[in-house]
């Protein structure tokens, strides 16, 4: 293994920027975030990078490494021996400075999702099997890599027509809760735009938590929308069943 590796890091702000190269000595077990910290300590103290736990739990250090959305703290430097590591900010969100992007749009949309509406007052006693599905979604660390890779947001910037995989998972978490009485299907079909997703599964591919976003979240939501808007026979059966 060579002694050092070259990192080409995006430097810039909302008005534009470019990549700047830095040489970093390789250490055993080093991750890309470590290399950026080395650059901050020795070459560029003004390099902006958002991070917090350095353990793939906080979801702060999302960026694009050689074109692929990844967590900086979970990506080992020795995976890139023999090549230059290009590090850029997430493409789908506006740059604030260097590798830091403005992801506030996601939080704005999260606030627009109708909250949990329990059928009974807390505390609840629930069977584990009833909450297994939604606990998978609760693993989300809000790194927004799924939002970044989603081609609807990334290539078409259709934030006004689709809220993205993270928001779909949030809605699925509420819709599938055994005690929730809320109805978010009109929202899903309308403003949240579940129909804009064409289930190409890139969100699932990049999720560092391994959440099966498409198969367990978005497709079941599409089917729930189909229950109401595309299946009058199924609706009649459900009505009779009640």
């Amino acid at each position: 293994m060579p002694d050092e590796i070259t990192l080409s890091v995006y430097r810039g702000d909302k008005s534009g920027g470019q990549e700047v190269e830095y040489k970093v000595p390789i250490q055993t077990g080093m991750v890309v975030l470590d290399a950026l910290h080395f650059i901050q300590a020795h070459d560029a103290p003004d390099l902006a990078v958002r991070w917090n736990c350095k353990a793939a739990h906080c979801g702060s250090c999302s960026a694009e490494i050689n074109g692929s959305p990844k967590l900086l703290c979970k990506t080992r430097v020795d995976d890139y021996v023999g090549e230059v590591i290009h590090i850029r900010p997430m493409h789908s969100f506006p740059v604030i400075k260097d590798l830091v992007t403005d992801v506030s749009w996601n939080y704005e949309k999260l606030r627009q999702v109708p909250a949990f509406q329990p059928a009974i007052k807390a505390p609840f006693t629930l069977q584990q099997r009833d909450v297994d599905r939604i606990q998978e979604f609760r693993n989300c660390i809000e790194c927004f890599l799924c939002q970044n890779i989603c081609h609807v947001l990334r290539d078409h910037d259709a934030k006004d027509r689709y809220w993205g995989p993270r928001l779909m998972i949030r809605i699925a978490e509420l819709e599938m809760h055994p005690l929730d009485t809320g109805d978010r299907l009109d929202l899903l079909k309308g403003a949240a735009g579940v129909g804009m997703c064409n289930i190409t599964k890139c969100c699932t591919v990049v999720c560092p938590q391994g959440i099966d976003i498409t198969d367990n979240g978005i497709i079941p939501l599409k089917e729930r929308v189909a229950d109401v808007y595309w299946d009058p026979l199924g609706g009649l059966v459900r009505k009779l069943h009640k």
């Binding site: 995006y10 810039g12 909302k14 008005s15 534009g16 920027g17 694009e64 050689n66 074109g67 692929s68 090549e83 290009h86 850029r88 900010p89 493409h91 789908s92 969100f93 506006p94 740059v95 604030i96 992007t101 403005d102 990334r154």
Partner: peptide, 11 residues
Amino acid sequence: MAQTAESLQPT
């Protein structure tokens, strides 16, 4: 709205 950064083709 502020500008987003250009992305690279993934290797």
